[in-house]
Nucleic acid binder design. Structure first.
Lengths: 193, 193
DNA sequence: CATAATTTGGAATGAAAGTTCCGAATACTT
DNA sequence: AAGTATTCGGAACTTTCATTCCAAATTATG
């Protein structure tokens, strides 16, 4: 009976995500979205609700992708030192090649919308917990396998690495200097003895 | 001849700075500013130009205060290890007591307005350079005085510390957990041997 | 092939955005 | 004390915002 949707919902959502990512929430108008997504105003509202709902769906998508890829990444990197080294260096690589200077969606949105969005704060809190836990479990497993000799508190290292990761995503928006970033990350990695 | 201004320009500028700091650039309307500053629309435009000019003046003020206070801070902390320890712990203290969760104006603005403001980018680049240089000179002096034995590259440590500092300002908007922040900062400080 | 459900583009709406303008009020100079 | 340059409050203006609405187009089913 019904006429079928003429666009792929996930494809459009990904486009919207990229636009919010690049421009932020406030600076992205519904008109911007309509122009970028290639669907009409009506379809946008029918499919995704209003601007805020669309945004939250984009953000959820980003989080999901991030957590999934991080989990897989750790699974495929059995050595914890190499793993973190690769993780940071990939972040640097991304930053250097990111012509649009989008940085990290989570970081951008944190600084733009906190303290003025309570429900988003809860999402960000659980995102932080999730990632720090992934870091911690990864470190713990590495230590159990004898890859780490350090007796430093692994929770604290997890949280420091999350802080550094966020910091990289800020700093590299200003100036993505590959050598500078690599050198400073190497110093941080020297904590993993 | 002329009627004199009925408000203190610097006082008003400080109020505007705090509003932009808390709400960001896009989310702060001229109406918000008029309500907050206690001066009329006309006075605002006459004195500071349009919204963008006012914003840039606020940002310049913030930078000036920051650089000055950092310079003084280092001067009054002759020991480099204690100095960085205090610097980070003050940042943590500020974050924990920051009920408004404003974070850092520079970080907030970086993630909100880059890549969409070229002139601001230049300001941010020089801000980064300035602060990293202050860090570096401080570390170098400490090393010369024999306070540091590390043979790690001091430029890289400066840049890592700037990254961590920025990261703290992001992470603490989500959750300003004093113990967690202190523990992770202590790990970073252990790099200063 | 006709019916009906749904999508779609664009116009319409009303609120809020940034900016300008103007008359009244004000305070320094002569 | 008078004159005048400037400030000031608020109305006015134009543009843009998010959202809703409607008629036309479309497509799967009976």
């Amino acid at each position: 009976m019904p006429r079928v949707k003429q666009f792929d919902e996930n494809e459009v959502l990904a486009k919207a995500m990229n636009l919010f990512w690049k421009q932020g929430y406030s600076a992205t108008s519904v008109q911007d979205l309509v122009s970028c997504l290639g669907i009409s105003r009506a379809s946008l509202y029918d499919t995704f609700g209003d601007k805020e709902q669309l945004f939250k769906k984009c953000f959820a998508l980003y989080r999901k992708c991030n957590i999934e890829s991080l989990t897989k990444f750790f699974q495929s990197h059995p050595n914890v030192k190499n793993g973190f080294s690769d993780l940071f260096n990939i972040a640097i690589q991304e930053a250097v090649h990111d012509k649009e200077k989008k940085g990290c969606f989570v970081v951008n949105i944190t600084t733009e919308l906190i303290p003025n969005d309570e429900t988003l704060l809860q999402v960000l809190e659980s995102n932080k917990r999730d990632i720090e836990n992934l870091f911690y479990e990864y470190l713990k497993k590495g230590k159990e396998k004898g890859q780490l000799k350090t007796d430093k508190d692994l929770k604290s290292i997890s949280s420091l690495f999350y802080t550094i990761y966020s910091g990289i995503k800020v700093v590299s928006k200003i100036e993505a200097n590959k050598k500078e970033l690599k050198d400073s990350v190497n110093i941080a990695l020297s904590l993993l003895v």
